[in-house]
Design a protein around this nucleic acid. Sequence first.
DNA 1: ATATAGATCTCGTCA
DNA 2: TGACGAGGTCTATAT
Lengths: 247, 247
Amino acid sequence: MEIKEFKDKFEQALSKNESIVFFCNCEIKYSGRAEAFLARGDRIIIVKGDNTVLVHQPEGSSPVNYMKPNSKLELVKHKKHLILKCQNLDYKDYLDIEIFRVYNFMNHKLEDGLKLELAGNEKDMSDMIKAKPELISNDFKPLSREEHTKFGFIDVFGHDKKGNMVIVECKRYTASLQCVTQLRRYVEKISELKGVSISKVKGIMASPSISPNAKEMLEKWKFKWVQVNPPKRLERYSKDQKSLVEW
Amino acid sequence: MEIKEFKDKFEQALSKNESIVFFCNCEIKYSGRAEAFLARGDRIIIVKGDNTVLVHQPEGSSPVNYMKPNSKLELVKHKKHLILKCQNLDYKDYLDIEIFRVYNFMNHKLEDGLKLELAGNEKDMSDMIKAKPELISNDFKPLSREEHTKFGFIDVFGHDKKGNMVIVECKRYTASLQCVTQLRRYVEKISELKGVSISKVKGIMASPSISPNAKEMLEKWKFKWVQVNPPKRLERYSKDQKSLVEW
DNA sequence: ATATAGATCTCGTCA
DNA sequence: TGACGAGGTCTATAT
């Protein structure tokens, strides 16, 4: 595509806050929270209506470069080609896309605004444990599923029949060393705030699995691991679609 | 665009491992590591040559849905429209994009393979501290910048003139509670492995800033915070471009 | 394959 | 706005 035609189309679409995608050959410089350089190659450039910019290489999930929403965009001439200059003053981020060739260009006003409904996250997991405390132990009585309280971000808080406080930390994936130190931090904080001996505050890690080193550290701190899998409320979707077309 | 035309173009581009982008009105179901549903709306769909799939809404940086590389893709008819069925057996991920309308379609064989050169990350920061230990203190003698050793993933390890061991944890952003617990874990591990009193192992947090609670915890554990900014080796790029076109 | 930790993380939530 | 933690995190690296 001719540079002139691209420039006209791009600027018109940009002014109307349309979504824009183009394939091009380009070189990229980034300066801001870090510094980056990407030599000439073919890439997919996405410019959204909120002035988000994404640069994707032809492989991989993550963008190789990007600019956050509300960036200022300007297409300027440089020698015989163009530079898409992007700046985000909030983050002090600057991105230059030097465009040598444009293969394809596409623009359209897109209407959405809907939000993804997601199930099977950590919150669902702690809800499940609060509702079915026997998943932890027959001894466990949950009192609250509190987040963002003065006691911290504890997933499930309760006590046992022996009068101990019990703190449950949920992880939807394999529990790591970091997860155990997080649990330890909560146990120490509760012990401090409530003025209770640390031996009276029990830490429980609830996760589908746990790494060997995490297990070792857990045992060193007299915490316990309980195997719990995250729930999947919307599993009917995958079942429905299996009945339509077999995977 | 007509459904028939879209199907032909898509399947041909897919078979040639070209990069594909289209704007469409669609509904999305995901089942795998979690479960998700996104009702009808306009989105940007990206299919890369390695069978990565990205679904973007018209605003925001992150994809609302995605499939990792090497997914199996199939476009099947459903009533009067199409479903792009994606499956990734490695991750047991399944994504259905029910396509009601296609506004624009674009495909092209893209050639790249270059890697981003990035400066200003945590590794650069620990390299800098190793080279300029006076950034930490006049007393600090770095011995190693080790990662992934038997001692753990310590950023910079060394000692001071008083014969204490010194562990430096670098963060390129505001140090949080989690960062301090990480440092604490390393200090405890070194103390254990080397058979040295914990009072003889000094913990240093090096970061551009630190949160109040993290600072409090740091002091409780007798660690110290040193303000260090991540280096920006490639800053010349932004200077160059400033001389070309003023921001 | 698993374990570990960084990331221009991004995103939501709350004080 | 900063602080804090989750994420279908993703990605790189070492074991």
